[in-house]
């Protein structure tokens, strides 16, 4: 029995990617520069240019909104000193807090997702706790753990916990019953079913939760540092307010945007690696990301 080529759907995709590949004499590096998608840079670069123009024309006072050129000077000044310490301190807190929170969420989420009576006992309490804003816990955390690192990390871990827990829980509950049945057909015991079917099938949900948890972790690190800290990006923010230096505040904000984007992109990269098997909308259109 022969197999006709039209049965293979992947072929059409291969052709389109071949077309997009650099051809002929263009060197690899130049081609890579040429193929960079710069559409995402138009809005921020345009906004900066307009801002500079407004301040230079005297329409906006530099005390209210410092022009980008001043920001650059401040950045150069900060870059020689405290900026990297602050970034490092915040990033380390996010990393530790997120790691603790998401690991705990994966453990608890798997238990509640797989075990119906655990859901009956635990789900209502979790839903009630989830309704409490993270910041409401701050006073209590400070009483319990003081104003040191522990209270900040617990706050970050708590923020990262819920999105990861919820997504894993719903991921497990949304696994296609038909796939589980295949495992049952081979009389596979529950641990094997979990490892071979339930975990891989709920990975797409889990990754969505992890990325959302990471963004909430950045949110909480700023909140925690605004309240009490001697270093960190949140500390830069409160310093800028106390000194009436909008340029400090803006640089801290830009740092947060860049760090958030970098950490999310890294996660996206891991996600795409782990989930290349997905036949989703974004990869279905001629292999071109939507």
């Amino acid at each position: 029995m022969t197999l006709s080529t039209h049965e293979f759907r992947g072929e059409a995709q291969d052709k389109t990617t071949a077309l997009r590949r650099p051809v002929g004499t263009v060197s690899g590096f130049a081609a890579r520069i040429a193929s960079l998608d710069l559409r995402g840079a138009i809005v921020p670069v345009g906004a900066l240019a307009l801002l500079e123009l407004f301040v230079r024309m005297g329409w906006v006072s530099p005390y209210v909104l410092p022009p980008p050129s001043d920001l650059y000077t401040t950045f150069l000044y900060l870059a020689e000193g405290p900026l990297w310490t602050n970034i490092g301190a915040s990033a380390l807190r996010v990393l530790i807090g997120f790691a603790f929170g998401s690991l705990l969420a994966i453990v608890v989420g798997s238990i509640v997702g797989l075990w119906y009576s655990a859901e009956r006992y635990l789900e209502p309490s979790f839903q009630a706790l989830r309704a409490v804003p993270s910041l409401a816990w701050v006073p209590l955390l400070m009483i319990w753990f003081g104003i040191g690192e522990t209270s900040k990390i617990v706050l970050i871990a708590k923020s990262a916990f819920f999105p990861v827990y919820l997504s894993l829980f719903s991921g497990i509950r949304n696994v296609d019953r038909k796939l589980v049945e295949v495992g049952e057909m081979y009389r596979q015991p529950l641990p094997v079913l979990v490892w071979r079917i339930l975990i891989p099938a709920s990975l797409p949900h889990l990754f969505t939760g992890l990325r959302y948890g990471l963004s909430l972790a950045w949110l909480s690190v700023v909140a925690a540092e605004l309240l009490a800290a001697s270093e960190g990006i949140g500390y830069m923010l409160s310093d800028g307010r106390e000194l009436s230096r909008p340029d400090l505040v803006l640089i801290a904000i830009i740092c947060l945007a860049i760090l958030g984007k970098i950490s999310d992109s890294l996660f996206k990269l891991i996600e795409d690696r782990c989930l290349s098997w997905r036949d989703s909308y974004s990869t279905a259109i001629g292999g071109r990301p939507a």
Binding site: K178, L179, E181, V182, M185, Y186, R187, R196, I197, P200, A201, L203, L275, W277, R278, D279
Partner: peptide
């Protein structure tokens, strides 16, 4: 098992290759 089943839909594990799906048992 002495009995095997072919379902109405292929029911392949989307994260496994063709070979891994065939050797799923």
């Amino acid at each position: 098992p002495p009995v095997a089943f072919v379902f109405q839909e292929p029911r392949l594990m989307p994260w496994l290759t063709v070979a891994q799906n065939i050797g799923f048992a």
